[in-house]
Design a protein around this nucleic acid. Structure first.
Lengths: 153, 153
DNA sequence: GCGCTTTGGTTGAACGTTCAACTATCTGCG
DNA sequence: CGCAGATAGTTGAACGTTCAACCAAAGCGC
């Protein structure tokens, strides 16, 4: 028997479309700014951030993929480019001969340090400046709930 | 003189990262589902939706780009593919000889109708089911505020 | 009506992502 | 030990997006 589709009511429809439009515009804007000012897309910036926060500024490829919310394949390609740019280096993992360790070079760190203020300013201007403190709090709870929900599914 | 960067405080940091993770996972999931079940990415689905809602199921390329939140170039490429799939047709605009009108074919409409229930179910499962009614309301207000803010900047 | 700018749209190259296939190593189990 | 999976990571092709360059038609000022 056919299962009835649970269509969106007008309010949900409106919510969904507003969410789509807002998150698309936000990401497009930040991506463009980062590309212009730092010469890399947001996904690459995030890889550098995660590496910079790791002990010894290095992470196993899998852990880095996990941290940056990326697929293994995507990360492989991305690190190949970051390596070509001189921002990341790859080394063999000493404890697992299948493994690779990605590590942030000094040059990569410097590039990140140079890009960070502009990017943070963008996040603030385009996101936080538009919202009240209460809304920021709501957005945090909603996002955490959602991230949890999606991870478990 | 150097302007001080307005860094994110720990709460903002947490909000931003949760938002990033949640929206990335949500979009990745919906995109993958749509690709699997309907053979098209979410951006293409949205183009078909906008066309299906337009009078006569047709829109000028520019208006369609605006409606679908896409660049002109992206839309050109996308419509070329959608046309090759037989879901959209392009015609010359009668009132402006520079212009093109994209129109949804019957086949495109049928494909959309077939894909819609599954996609809507996905949006419900992955987004709305995780949130309380109050949170849905908050998300709508936040998104509308944000979309407004971004459009004006 | 004649140039100038603007608008509508396309194109190709470079880039980033996805997907499936593949290699190599590791782990568990009989 | 020996072998069947599982895990780590890479690769290439196909695809979608971006960016800048481009053409054609429209609007505008004179």
């Amino acid at each position: 028997m056919a299962v009835m589709t649970r269509w969106l009511d007008p309010d949900e429809q409106r919510t969904w479309r507003a969410y789509l439009a807002a998150s698309r515009m936000l990401m497009d804007t930040l991506d463009r700014e980062l590309q212009r000012e730092a010469g890399m897309p947001h996904a690459y910036y995030e890889i550098l951030v995660r590496l910079s926060e790791a002990p010894g500024r290095q992470l196993r490829m899998s852990d880095l993929a996990e941290a940056a919310g990326s697929s293994r394949s995507r990360l492989s390609h991305a690190v190949a480019r970051l390596e070509a740019a001189g921002w990341v280096r790859r080394e063999d993992c000493p404890t697992d001969r299948r493994g690779q360790v990605a590590l942030l070079t000094d040059e990569g760190f410097a590039t990140l340090a140079a890009a960070a203020p502009g990017h943070v300013e963008g996040v603030r201007r385009h996101l936080f400046d538009a919202l009240s403190p209460a809304q920021v709090d709501q957005l945090r709870r909603i996002s955490e709930t959602l991230a949890d929900h999606l991870r478990r599914s």
